[in-house]
Design a protein around this nucleic acid. Structure first.
Lengths: 169, 169
DNA sequence: ATATATGCAAAATGTTTGCAGACCC
DNA sequence: GGGTCTGCAAACATTTTGCATATAT
């Protein structure tokens, strides 16, 4: 198994580059707003809701509107840099996608934070299941919900919530 | 691996019983509308959207309103007999839940239909992943998206869409 | 009898769209 | 300069709520 906790931090410059490449290929324009929103999105490591993204963006440019965030996120999704996700029952979330390898999610139902992991055994088994039904597998989604060490009451237990903040900021 | 295609058909009587038990425990009332909606929901084997459920119910009682369907489904969710799910980007779906064993989903991205399966290897591996992060696993969600044999262009290929109709009706 | 449920319509959410003016190439 | 973008507000879609009437216990 492969723990991606430490690796992450995908190169924002490179992601912005991909975004700009897509825009110019489609003869669309780079604007202050799009850049700002994309930056904030990538900097959030891609687990973010429209509203959070709007607020982060407005911190730097208060005149940003909802529509622009929606439209920019749609562009990011079109070029494979963002993917819409709907965890649990909450709001629609977006995450970075398409960059490198696939990952699944491990979510603490107490502190709400999301960890990524990758496990080849599971991936292989998924292939086998699909094949056994005659399907060809295109993509999948796996989310594990549970309690992190701290939430389980382990003294000094590690909590992804805090851990992620340390890594992100 | 365990193919649940044939098994399913959870006993509708028993599910209705559980529902009624919950209602009376909570001093809520059994009504024609609630019973009708619950019946239709259980009979659909629990993969259904609000709108479909409304239409099925209206076929028998045209005066059923949206609100009643929403409210009934909320009750069913409260007592663990229904669970809200949001596959892909489509509509919010509801499914039966809490009855017996857990299952995952295999979804054809062409014909849109949903197959259930259960695979112990994957379940065990999920446990291991969670434990390796210090988590205790509470629940999970696994969805495989792919192409069914027919969608893949295999002549005479089996299509879950048709298959499920055969089994359900 | 009375507390709860229904059905309607209005309200609240979340997301998309149309348009006049602003901006990028 | 001309086509694209933005921000606003209005339009939509979906889900929830308030209320007068109907119904179950």
């Amino acid at each position: 198994m492969h723990d991606r906790r430490q690796s992450a931090v995908p190169d924002i410059e490179s992601l912005m580059g991909q975004f700009h490449a897509y825009l110019s290929k489609k003869q669309l324009k780079s604007t202050r707003q799009r850049d700002l929103i994309a930056q904030k999105f990538f900097a959030a490591h891609g687990h973010i809701s429209i509203e959070e993204l709007l607020n982060l963006s407005r911190a730097e440019n208060p005149r940003i509107g909802y529509a622009t965030v929606y439209r920019t996120l749609k562009l990011l999704a079109e070029c494979g840099l963002a993917a819409q996700r709907r965890f649990g029952d909450g709001q629609t979330m977006y995450e970075t996608a398409g960059d490198t390898e696939h990952h699944d999610h491990l979510i603490c139902i107490e502190c709400q934070h999301v960890l990524e992991f990758q496990n080849d055994d599971i991936e292989h088994e998924q292939e086998r299941v699909a094949r056994s039904f005659g399907f060809s597998l295109v993509r999948h989604r796996l989310e594990l919900y549970g309690l992190c060490p701290r939430a389980r009451g382990i003294k000094g237990g590690w909590c992804p919530n805090e851990e992620q903040r340390k890594l992100s900021d």
